[in-house]
Design a protein around this nucleic acid. Sequence first.
DNA 1: TCATTGATGGTCT
DNA 2: GACCATCAATGAG
Length: 198
Amino acid sequence: MRRNGRGRRTRLLAPFFERDALVVAREMLGKRLVRRTGDGERTGRIVEVEAYVGEDDGACHARWGRTPRGSILFGPPGRAYVFLIYGMYHCLNFVVEREGFPAAILVRAVEPLSGIEAPTNGPGKVCLAFAIDRSLNGEDTTRSKTLWLEEGEHEEKIATSPRVGVAYAGRVWAAKPWRFFLAGNAFVSKARGVTRGT
DNA sequence: TCATTGATGGTCT
DNA sequence: GACCATCAATGAG
């Protein structure tokens, strides 16, 4: 477990998130996702993410501008963006880049470390296993007592592929290699056709 | 192994 | 009214 000089685990703060989305996406791999509830603490290593970048990105929820749902994306970095998808699952993102520029990193898969009993190899399953729903939308993870990221490492190589489930975004945006995952990690999602990367 | 489908409700034009 | 950053179950080959 990575700890700072006083033996505490090190939380990721605004400067980490307030950078180029693709850089943050890569660096989020291996970091520790922490969720604290009345049931105790659940933690896991992030092994797969996707980047959604700007109003021009045909797959980003900011593509219509500042709609009620997407307004969180325009806010300060480090906040959680949680939305309901297909009427029954939630997706967890971390808002990145400077305030005013809409971008977020989707957490697609996690390797369980503690307190986890359900599978976490997919964005909907991560939210189920970590008890994450829309009540956490807008949560400031740089200060939150219930949801945040901590420092962490990985030795695996980083692989990339197009993002999953965004064919509607058009040829250009759907083809962007903005899915990042740890090559060979058993907890990466089993999305068809895009599980192999470089 | 691969492709297809149903569940289910919020959010968009 | 159509669509969707998902998932598990189903059935064909």
